[in-house]
Design a protein around this nucleic acid. Structure first.
Lengths: 213, 213
DNA sequence: AATTATACAAACAGATACGTATGTTAAAAC
DNA sequence: GTTTTAACATACGTATCTGTTTGTATAATT
């Protein structure tokens, strides 16, 4: 029964959403296209009409997730006049909060973390690495600005601060996503960020003044 | 052709080592028992003789990896008289170095990170969580001792320091293992540890006292 | 020395899962 | 109004993987 173009696009989207759930629950390589089809309320025929195979479906699923606009973030960093560190901390905390609230993102990221990047979906891995590299570069720029404006503790370089933050965020999210969300991501995350950025800011002389006074 | 008991144990071990390589390369659920058998130079008959199925093989592989003796670490923490923080930093750095040198551990950990913990190998996940929880508890004890002895900066609590270190180590290793070892784990790791522990130690008043005395 | 149990290999049967080929219906195109 | 074609469903053939069964040579047992 031929559907209208809008309806077809609807089924395509429902297949993508079903693939997201099924891939998340059973793992990409463990899920069959029939699982996805049943979850979407269609048959494998519909999947093979809209996508060429499972790898293609996975790639399209990966492409369907909207990327955060890095340009905007970069511009905001430029414009964040006073305390750059405060802005970075707030952005990181907000990102955690969005992650905790958005099951869509959680599933996509979990799938990406767990997926066995063997040969066929290697382009996904490479693209993911590009995105990560750009994010790290953005962070390092921000921390460099913070250092040049005297906000960064002498103990930290822009690079080491970037990596410390990046790895902490990564470890935090990995544990939360891969090991069953056993804590409140936003609360624990913001607490950790507070401490880490406290140590970024803590310039000894000022601290001494604080303690002495 | 029946082999002697020693030879049988040898083939069992070769199957386990082959499973480690194959699971690492193709992913657990994507690897067939025939792949493992061929990699081990046997047939599936040998595998089904020594193990009951793939899940059992995976569990035995997981059990075959020797656990670091926590008791010893705990005792060393107790005995580390002077600077507990220095000991923790050194232990963490050594752990990274061992990881970088031991391809065996790398593969096992990668498999564990990527494996789709669905239903059947849930006990593995739970045991892994227990191990992690004990490690975190050990760390927190050490940091508590560090705090009570005045080595820990007022900016950090024992808990927040524990989590910061834990997440940073986790993010570091996850990125290194899952995304293709694009940097020197030991060097970058020790650098990051140096900065983080620098901020742990940096306690103005105590440092002042130390310097003055 | 004969028997038995062990350590596998080889063959077999059943279940998926994949890709394709074909069928079907209704929306477009003319 | 007829034809065409898009959007699927259904059916088919095939490869693969699994679990079991059977075969077999040799070490261990008696």
């Amino acid at each position: 029964m031929r559907r209208t173009k809008a309806e077809a696009e609807e089924t395509r989207n429902s297949i993508l959403r079903a693939a997201e759930r099924v891939f998340f629950e059973k793992g990409v390589s463990n899920a069959s296209l029939d699982d996805v089809a049943k979850a979407a309320g269609v048959t494998r025929g519909a999947i093979y009409w809209h996508f060429s195979n499972k790898t293609d479906l996975f790639l399209e699923l990966y492409n369907s997730v909207p990327m955060p606009q890095e340009d905007m973030i970069a511009r905001e960093i430029e414009e964040s006049g006073s305390d750059v560190l405060f802005y970075i901390e707030r952005t990181a905390g907000d990102w955690l909060e969005e992650m905790a609230a958005d099951e869509h993102r959680q599933r996509i990221l979990t799938i990406l973390l767990r997926c066995p990047y063997g040969e066929d979906l290697l382009p996904v891995l490479e693209r993911q690495q590009e995105v990560d590299d750009r994010h790290v570069a953005l962070l390092e720029n921000a921390f460099t600005k913070a250092r040049s404006e005297g906000y960064l503790n002498a103990n930290w370089t822009a690079q080491s601060a970037t990596k410390a933050l990046w790895w902490m965020m990564g470890g935090l999210c990995s544990e939360w996503l891969l090991f069953g969300r056993r804590f409140d991501l936003a609360v624990e995350g913001r607490e950790g960020l507070k401490r880490l950025f406290g140590s970024f800011r803590q310039v000894p002389s000022a601290a001494e003044t604080l303690v002495v006074s």
